[in-house]
Amino acid sequence: MKPMPVKNKSSIGTDLLLAERLIQLGARPPIVSQLCHLTRKQSIAFFKTVQGQSPKQGMLPHDHQWVIRTALNNIHASLFLSMLEDIRHRLSTPNLSAAILVKAFEIYINVASKILTDRQCIQPRSSQHCPLDINRAWYLISLLSSGDLVFILCGRCHARYLGMIHPDAVFSQCPICDVWTDRSGRRRWITAKSKKLTLNKPRTR
């Protein structure tokens, strides 16, 4: 029987520092446990130590159409995942690590608080007031890796944004160009539901 590999102290210390930073950014124990090689009980106990309270109960975000529900959601998700992919490309690694998630999300929060300020982003540099939190960001990474989300380059503004694969087609609409302003001054974007209905119409032969 082969002996179990023993992690050195520096590796354990690095994992704990990354776990602490993930929790400070709002990550819940299941994500911390997966990325920082901690057990479920260790992650929960560490969360209580860092945050001073018990973690939120219930399932992690899993709405696969969140990205295409509003233009604002799409812009924030596209910004974050673009940064993540750029970091992966620079490091030549396809895998997600705690360090990469922390770095990408910190850059996203910094940029979003400066150039994407919105009513929902009241306090700069605070992930709690932006449409995209780190838990949903972690879920969107899995959608991108599985091919459910794809990057599309807009032919008009040349922005790189996210499209979603539907059973019959790709939901591809630029969140910057393909919007309109209603009489009340609100910027509108076609909803995922209405777009899906259009995509799922039977094809004429």
Rank of each mutant, 00 (worst) to 15 (best):
N74W: 00
K114L: 10
S113T: 09
V111Y: 07
N110K: 14
N74G: 02
A99R: 15
S82R: 09
C130I: 15
K103S: 04
L96N: 15
K114T: 14
P94T: 10
I109P: 00
N74P: 00
N73S: 05
N95H: 09
A112N: 05
W66H: 09
E106K: 10
N95G: 03
F105R: 13
S82L: 05
E106L: 10
E85K: 14
D118C: 10
F105H: 08
L81C: 11
L116Q: 07
D86V: 12
R88I: 08
Q123A: 12
I75V: 15
W66Q: 05
R69Y: 02
R90A: 10
F80S: 01
R69L: 07
I87R: 13
T70G: 08
L116V: 02
T93A: 05
I109H: 01
V102M: 08
R119F: 13
L116E: 05
S113M: 04
R125I: 00
L84Q: 10
H129S: 12
N95Q: 13
A104I: 02
D86M: 14
P94G: 13
I100F: 02
S92Q: 12
N74Q: 12
C121Q: 13
A112V: 05
Q123N: 09
L116R: 02
S113V: 09
T93K: 09
C121N: 13
I107T: 08
A98N: 15
Q128D: 12
S127P: 11
N110Q: 14
L84A: 07
C130T: 12
W66S: 11
A99H: 15
I115A: 07
V67A: 01
L84Y: 12
I107F: 09
E85T: 14
V111A: 07
M83H: 07
L96H: 06
N73W: 00
